[in-house]
Design a protein around this nucleic acid. Structure first.
Length: 507
RNA sequence: GGCCCGUUCGUCUAGGGGUUAGGACAUCAGAUUUUCAUUCUGGCAACAGGGGUUCGAUUCCCCUACGGGCUACCA
């Protein structure tokens, strides 16, 4: 596909659900597409929830995007605005467009109360405010002009609804799905402007996209059924030539059972569905995020990109730059994808293994600090990271895999040593500590050599003393190669831990 | 119920009129690592069903089934 115009894509993450996996993936695909085509990546922040401003939502959204490395472009935009747009700042622009539609006969005022509509729906489960019902309801199509003006003047609560045309077929080409069409007789007269004067998504998205000169609009598949409303709006507002190209992305589904992945599934299934921890000030509820669980943003982006897209090769690990250069909207799959947390962890493990120790340092240091271990020696930390990173799946695993380098074990896995502990083994370690004390060339190889030589001299099998040695150093049956540990610990500390271990094992 | 979208191993997917239907995760077995993990090698495992079109269909078309979405003065 060739894109001649400037590509501007937009996304409107909402505070409550917008930055779950599906939302971040939508942002990501927007970003990749925009960057791939050297276009603009415009963000509209949905900082209201059910019409109310959500404290902290904007900051949270920006933090998430920054962590992911998906920074939206700053203005100036077509209408002169700078930076990301905020929904809460744009309330006033919409009414005049809605009224313009009424005057042109493409929309109408409706005075039915929510209660009246509810009872209609109760009576008839198939009730639809549209072609077959609009002529018997309270609106400017059935009421006289004078009556309507009087009600308007009196300030009676009312909405503005689009008037769906009869017997038309609205069709468009979706970049992912191809030709999609709808029978206008079967689409209802959606509310465009609510009784409180605020636009619904349907009105706002069209006007904002027009004003922001959006050329490509990506959103989740759940929006497909309302696409005909939006397309008609583009025509009725007289902007048909400026309508963006559409792409409706497949949904991310629950790994078990069925349905769209939702915020609640995280708690139920034991994995995050948000990019970062979100603390809802209204409910005091904390929704956990991938970041805090120990995911690397590179891995998070990578796994999201591969959920519903691939470049046609067998490559699975991509940097963000590779994704930008290889991304193509035609290769996005049509079908929804079940989220697989095991595979997500695999991506993270791969990224940890492939990352330089220097890259991981900051994150790891933070995790240690949060657990009461302050690290001052950068180089030492980097050595430790290099040594243990291939056994970590999450960044938080560094704690278990590396904390013993900073803190001597407080307890030992005695069950693995005591039953087979003998005086001759104790002798061995006492002698070994002596040897270490006099060693000048303290390297993994040389330590191992001395260890084995001494074992032979004492008539012990190497295997018999290896495990006790490990447990002396780290406390349990885990961690990297023992002699590597000893070297990083340095002579003095290794000897100290041997003595401490001897005491614990012999008592 | 109505409308729309979809359907290849358990999961994510590649492929595409003639293939031993490929890879990855998970899983199982073996090797290596005198802990655990890593790594390596191998195994199990899929074209929803029925009709067309065709010499030939998993691939194209239709129907059915199943799944999902929407059906709010939420997005």
């Amino acid at each position: 596909m060739s894109v001649n115009k400037r590509v501007r894509v937009r996304f409107a993450p909402s505070p409550t659900g917008g930055l779950h996996l599906g939302g971040v993936r939508t942002v990501l695909f927007n970003y990749l597409f925009a960057r791939h085509h050297n276009g603009d990546f415009i963000l509209r922040i949905e900082d209201t929830d059910q019409g109310r401003y959500v404290e902290g939502a904007e900051q949270y959204i920006m933090d998430c995007l920054e962590w992911c490395g998906l920074i939206p472009d700053e203005g100036p935009h077509a209408d002169g605005g700078y930076g990301p747009y905020r929904q809460s700042e744009r309330k006033e622009n919409y009414r005049k467009y809605a009224e313009q539609l009424v005057n042109a006969g493409f929309a109408y005022y409706a005075f039915d109360t929510p209660e009246e509509l509810d009872s209609q729906r109760k009576e008839n489960p198939n009730f639809r405010y549209g072609l077959e019902n609009r002529n018997r309801l309270k609106n400017s199509l059935t009421l006289s002009k004078e009556e309507v003006n009087r009600m308007l003047d009196e300030g009676l609560p009312h909405v503005i609804r689009i008037k769906m045309p009869a017997d038309e077929v609205v069709s468009f080409t979706d970049m992912i799905r191809g030709e999609v069409s709808f029978d206008t007789n079967l689409v209802d007269d959606k509310v465009l402007l609510k009784a409180d004067g605020m636009p619904t998504y349907h009105l706002a998205v069209v006007i904002d996209d027009y004003l922001m000169k959006i050329s490509h609009a990506f959103r989740g598949e759940e929006w497909l059924p309302s696409a005909p409303v939006h397309i008609l709006l583009w025509q009725y507002l007289g902007w048909a030539d400026d309508m963006p190209e559409w792409a409706h992305l497949p949904l991310i589904l629950k790994p078990d059972g069925h349905g769209k992945l939702s915020k609640r599934d995280g708690a139920r299934l034991g994995f995050p569905v948000f990019a970062m921890n979100w603390f809802d000030p209204k409910t005091n509820e904390l929704t956990p995020g991938f970041k805090e669980l120990g995911f690397l943003p590179e891995a998070f982006i990578n796994l999201l990109a591969l959920l519903g897209w691939n470049d046609g090769t067998e490559q699975e690990i991509f940097t963000i730059d590779e994704l930008v250069s290889k991304f193509s909207i035609e290769r996005v799959s049509k079908a929804g994808a079940k989220f697989d947390f095991e595979k997500a962890k695999w991506f993270n493990a791969e990224w940890i293994k492939r990352s330089e120790a220097g890259r991981l340092k900051t994150e790891v240091m933070k995790i240690f600090a949060n657990n009461g271990i302050d690290i001052s020696d950068d180089q030492y930390l980097e050595q430790i990271i290099s040594l243990v990173k291939e056994r970590c799946i999450l960044l938080t695993d560094f704690l278990e895999q590396g904390s013993f380098f900073f803190k001597a074990p407080e307890s030992y896995d005695l069950d693995s040593v005591k039953p087979k502990w003998t005086d001759s083994k104790a002798d061995f370690f006492k002698a070994f500590a002596e040897i270490l004390n006099t060693m000048e060339d303290f390297h993994a190889g040389s330590v191992e050599q001395k260890f084995k030589a001494l074992a032979e001299e004492k008539g012990l099998k190497v295997g018999e003393v290896m495990l006790p040695f490990r447990i002396m150093l780290v406390g349990g049956k885990f961690g990297p190669q023992v002699f590597e540990i000893a070297v990083l610990l340095k002579q003095e500390e290794t000897i100290r831990r041997i003595h401490k271990g001897l005491l614990a094992f012999s008592s």
